[in-house]
Design a protein around this nucleic acid. Structure first.
Length: 575
RNA sequence: CGGGGUGUAGCUCAGCCUGGUAGAGCACUGCGUUCGGGACGCAGGAGCCGGAGGUUCAAAUCCUCUCACCCCGACCA
């Protein structure tokens, strides 16, 4: 492609509406334009990046025995009513009516539609297993779309669903998909982690997320420095390595702490470190109040708490409720003589000499002990794991267990074991070899295609622009002709361009009548992985320059060898 | 939905406080000079000042309502 023919409206200045790097660069590099909040146009180069990711996904999935189908964006309310998600999904599900006043929605995900397809056409165990996927537009009416392509309302997603005769086979495919996804993101040239994840509202009992590591990531993930363990912080297990909370038994002593409510304030006032505090939070679990304890420097994980006490609805009490239940305003709650069910993080088991609120306004206690003051508390892991914790995966057998390290990540893919969550209500059944009707086991596997493009940029950019991994770059090579009105330059550029095209390299010839600086800046902004510079300066010696986007200096190559040289570099880097 | 902010040319923004007939830089068109890291000169095209209502002789500017977009929070496969 020639830049004079290309719709590539690059911008010199950052658009005011964009805040995150990928959004800014996609706009500046002329790849993306916003149409409405969370809804975008893809310009030619942006779309090429999307297609490159999609192609890798297709190749790997087809190789793994998956089959591509295409489901409708619009689906009828009835299907969603069968799975009961019409009522449960909430406002994210954009509902519409047709001219006959029939209800439909724009698909945010396609479990129902795919299960419906399979239940109608698959009757026998002989037809299973089956793994069907599509790469298509999804619509989720997000409360707050943000960060450009990272969280749009309309986006392109690969969603796959597998159907099996039993749990073992479903589990096998789950592991298979986990391996396939690892290959996909590796081929995309991304640095990522596969992490254990909470299954959330979608249900099921097993899930892994694929997290592209980037400073700007919305998710916090923890991974072991020694073993393979990695998990979303929502789910991560770790053992606190701080000092054991045993400061020796002493008698309970009340301390006046006027207007000091936060751990930090009281900690500073009493000259005691936060880890010596018993933090006490009042929750309502399915309508019943309880007090939850953890160390002052820890935080309560509501996901873990919910799982431990097996409740469905969990919320923090408000100021008024706290005063009613503890007899003191917010900030002075403690476990001593409190008349509530107590749940405590296991870190506090056997603690002595702690500090806590006194359930009285402007007062705290010193000398709080597990045995003496909350012997009946239910213990469990309810704290949020953090960097520096010992890894529980290796700690039982290793003398020196690994420590958890924190990374920020962007979730670009996820795999779920679904079981019969959808096949049961929708009646996706088959006849087994003995002629018995059985319910299919299901798994679901998603990749945010457009989000992967954004994540690639978040991870790979510098102050000059995008630094595309070769495998997903819109074009692999740009030929910069520094002086287009020079016959020799033009001829040499055209020759290299034709040779690269013939070699199957995606290349752009910058044939604009622009100054060299403009072309160099655009090339860096757009992020072509390789640049060949053809100018009078080099041609005098029969040479052109070749430079990788990541390199600081260019190599001088003889004109005749340039195309072949760069073509082999590209092939090597495609992955 | 709560809090904060912004809407003026394709982009970035000034003008608004103190009302008086619309500006700059970049981008775009033409001509000339320039030409290896976002050149320069001259000439040009381009705006319902987000929209509606109000106050006023007069509104981009003041008032009311509304819409859109951005950020923080709650929410989220």
């Amino acid at each position: 492609m020639r830049t004079t023919k290309l719709l590539l409206p690059t911008l010199k200045e950052d658009p005011a509406d964009a805040d995150v790097v990928s959004h800014k660069l996609l706009l500046r590099a002329g790849m993306l334009r916003q149409v409405a909040r969370g809804i975008y146009d893809f310009l030619p180069l942006g779309l090429r990046a999307v297609h490159k990711v999609a192609r890798i996904v297709r190749e790997e999935l087809d190789l793994a025995g998956c089959q591509e189908v295409l489901l409708p964006l619009v689906s009828p309310a009835e299907l969603w009513q069968e799975s009961e998600r019409w009522d449960k999904y909430g406002k994210e599900l954009l509902r519409i009516k047709d001219r006959h006043d029939r209800e439909f929605c724009l698909g945010p995900t396609h479990e129902e539609v795919m299960t419906d397809l399979v239940r109608r056409d698959v009757r026998s165990y002989r037809d299973l297993p089956l793994n069907l996927y599509q790469i298509a537009t999804k619509f989720r009416d997000e409360i707050r779309p943000r960060f450009g392509l990272m969280r749009g309302r309309e986006f392109i997603m690969k969603d796959g669903y597998s159907f099996h005769v039993d749990y073992e086979d479903c589990r096998r495919e789950y592991e298979n998909m986990r391996a396939v996804y690892t290959r996909i993101f590796r081929r995309c040239g991304l640095t990522f982690r596969v992490v254990e994840a909470d299954t959330g509202a979608i249900g099921g009992s097993m899930s892994h997320e694929f997290q592209v590591l980037a400073e700007s990531g919305e998710d916090l993930i923890l991974s072991c420095s020694k073993c393979e363990y990695a998990a979303n912080v929502e789910k991560a297990l770790g053992k606190s390595t701080g000092a054991e909370p045993r400061y020796g038994h002493s008698t309970l002593e009340k301390v006046e702490t006027p207007d000091l409510r936060t751990i930090d304030e009281v900690s500073a006032f009493m000259s005691e470190p936060p880890e010596r505090f018993v933090k006490t939070l009042i929750y309502f679990a399915d309508g019943k109040a309880l007090a939850v304890l953890c160390r002052g420097d820890d935080q309560i994980s509501e996901i873990k708490l919910r799982a431990l006490i097996k409740c469905s609805e969990l919320r923090l009490a408000d100021g008024e409720e706290i005063e009613q239940l503890t007899g003191a305003p917010q900030g002075f709650a403690g476990p001593v003589a409190i008349e509530l069910r107590l749940v405590a993080d296991q870190t506090l088991r056997g603690c002595e000499g702690m500090v806590s609120g006194a359930n009285k306004k402007d007062a705290h206690y010193r000398g709080v002990d597990h045995e003496a003051h909350f012997p009946d508390a239910q213990f469990g892991d309810v704290r949020v794991a953090k960097a520096g914790d010992a890894c529980l995966r290796c700690s039982p057998n290793a003398a020196e267990p690994g420590l958890l390290e924190a990374h920020r990540g962007i979730e670009v893919g996820q795999v779920f074991y679904l079981g019969q969550k959808y096949s049961q209500p929708l009646g996706a059944t088959f006849l087994d070899a003995d002629g018995n009707e059985r319910i299919m086991e299901m798994g679901t596997y998603g990749i945010g295609i457009t989000r992967t493009v954004a994540a690639a940029i978040e991870q790979n950019h510098d102050e000059r622009g995008i630094v595309w991994p070769v495998a997903i770059a819109p074009y692999e090579v740009v030929i910069v002709a520094t002086k287009w009105d020079d016959d020799a330059v033009r001829e040499a550029s055209e020759a290299i361009y034709e040779e690269l095209r013939a070699a199957g390299i995606d290349c752009v010839l910058d044939d604009r009548d622009e100054r060299a600086g403009v072309k160099f800046n655009d090339a860096d902004l757009v992020g072509y992985p390789f640049r060949i510079t053809v100018g009078p300066r080099g041609l005098k010696d029969g040479k052109v320059e070749c430079k990788a986007r990541t390199a600081t200096d260019a190599d001088e190559i003889a004109i005749a060898e340039a195309a072949g040289h760069v073509a082999s570099l590209v092939r090597q880097a495609r992955g």
